[in-house]
Nucleic acid binder design. Structure first.
Length: 275
DNA sequence: ACGACTGTTGTGGT
DNA sequence: AACCACAACAGTCG
């Protein structure tokens, strides 16, 4: 489900609901979500008494800064957070519940159970999986365009695949890669090593614009995404290519085409994005 | 009714 | 290095 704009919206909505809250206990219904530590009892024990001080985001990861620890959470396809009063009805597919001392609780729901959580000592989170290989995300202030361009220009892979690679640029998923390439006017099958510096610059700027606008709209809801307050996103109304198969291109009125690239559905305008 | 497809990522084989 | 098939799951759509 969520790509950078959805995760950022979740971060912003969740912050207001849980900052300053102290955990009393944790319930785990689907242990495989907990990747670190290995022992789920240890995960629970470590969290007791920890207070949520801040929530950060890196790419599609949420980082909960706690008193002494950092909880790194990836929502994969369907992960969601919500805050409830103790005793409120528990929605289906609720797998993890963080009980706070004030009687509220943070619940993690995930229909497909693909999400992951890793718990680290403060400061260690960037030196190990899953964050160690993660590239910078394009909304970071010190994003290195030079490094980004180098990685693209020495690659034989097609640009669609490169942009989905979180070790090259973090935060883009299937929706925003297709939208970024449309805005940039670049065909998804262009090889990395065929792109000029100027084209890569255009791609980077298109990504930033697309992501910033999507965040303004609270993300994209295709079928199930909601933020931490249960609200859907609005950016789906502004999609130019993703999910627009056979519709008229909003720029040139040619038909949007869908094809498979590396197993992923890929949408583009054959007129605006030529090889 | 059933296979194909889905906003993600990791692994193992070639 | 990089692609493919497949895996983890559950729901929806044609």
């Amino acid at each position: 489900m969520p790509e950078l704009p959805e995760v950022e919206t979740i971060r912003q909505t969740l912050r207001q609901l849980v900052i300053g809250k102290e955990m009393e206990s944790v319930d785990i219904k689907w242990p495989k979500i907990i990747q670190k530590p290995d022992d789920m009892e240890e995960f629970k024990q470590l969290l007791v008494g920890q207070t949520i001080e801040e929530i950060r985001r890196k790419g599609k990861f949420l980082l909960f800064d706690l008193t002494d620890l950092v909880l790194v959470s990836h929502l994969r396809m369907e992960g969601k957070y919500g805050v409830f009063q103790k005793g409120e009805e528990i929605a289906e597919h609720t797998h993890i519940t963080f009980h706070f001392v004030d009687g509220t609780e943070l619940r993690y729901r995930d229909v497909r159970k693909f999400g992951t959580m890793h718990l680290f000592e403060k400061g260690a989170e960037l030196d190990e999986k899953p964050l160690i290989q993660l590239a910078m995300d394009p909304l970071e202030e010190h994003f290195s365009f030079t490094l980004f361009a180098q990685k693209i220009q020495k690659s034989e892979r097609v640009i669609k695949n490169i942009l989905l690679d979180q070790t090259v640029i973090a935060g883009l998923g299937n929706i925003y890669v297709d939208e970024t390439l449309f805005l940039a006017g670049i065909h998804p099958l262009r090889k990395g090593n065929s792109l000029t510096l100027s084209e890569i610059e255009t791609i980077y700027q298109s990504a930033v614009l697309t992501l910033q606008e999507a965040i303004k709209q609270g993300g994209t809801t295709i079928r199930s995404y909601v933020n931490s307050q249960g609200q859907i996103g609005m950016f789906q109304q502004q999609l130019h290519v993703y999910g627009q198969t056979d519709k008229a291109c909003r720029k040139c009125h040619d038909k949007i085409v869908k094809m498979k690239v590396n197993g992923r559905g890929t949408h583009f305008c054959p007129t605006c994005q030529q090889l």
